[in-house]
Amino acid sequence: MASEEGHHGPETSSEYISHHLQNLQVCKSDSGEWVWNQCAGNFYTINVDSMFWSVLLGLLFIFLFHRVARRASTSKPTRWQAFVEIIVEFVDGSVKDTFHGTSRLIAPLGLTIFVWVFFMNLMDLIPVDWIPWISSNFLGIPYMKVVPSTDVNVTFGMSIAVFFLIIFYTTKYKGPFGLIKDLTLHPIAPPTKGIGLVFAPIIIAFNFILESVALLAKPVSLSLRLFGNMFAGELIFILIAILGLWQLPLHFGWAVFHVLIVTLQAFIFMMLTIVYLSLASESH
């Protein structure tokens, strides 16, 4: 435990925790150079560990599923193909239950989100010190956060893509005016004639504020839900890891419980994406 320290003297618990919560970062400093791990407050920073694991797990998803897709056999499916088909049918069923239009994008989007997020969350079950220990002792990398979904940038990155898809689908199915109507004429329909017309601008402004907040809350809640769950889970793993020998049963118990969270959060992210997009494409 706590073997990856970079400085002298025994590590305190708070140092251990904050070290575990530190991303491996590279950024462009004010002098124009790319520097490692001195990036606080600099927007032009890349969390190398998050990106690495996220892309690696994405490629794992692509590899595993593309292998099946390439050799998809109708009459003689392999066991792995059968398993992949179960997932695909599950996602397809969820999409068909919720989204009533026809879209070539939503189902593959759901599948990618589900499996990718699941893989990213699953990294949480690797004991917290293993990969950081290897990377600091053998690769000379001081920081290594291995669970991409505990990085708010990663979850926000995904939910922002979903946000733009919501805008895109609203425009596609209702036209640009549909988007504006959605934002201004709900939930209170402004009066169109008579003396009430005076209040129409106020009502429209009120609607607009309300609906804009609702629209913006979608990606924010989507990403923060995933981030919060995974970050909290990771933090508890780290706290358990401080306890010495007692960590073994506790770690096991929390890991069992966490398997549920890992799957559930991946499913929720996928399902909410589908729901938001189907809401965007249906008129009220």
């Binding site: 927007f43 996220s54 708010v152």
Partner: peptide, 18 residues
């Protein structure tokens, strides 16, 4: 915990994978 360029990187990765 700051928002940084990783966000855009992740969005691009997601678009590619999807």
């Amino acid at each position: 915990m700051d928002i940084n360029l990783t966000l855009i990187g992740q969005t691009i990765a997601m678009i590619v994978f999807v």
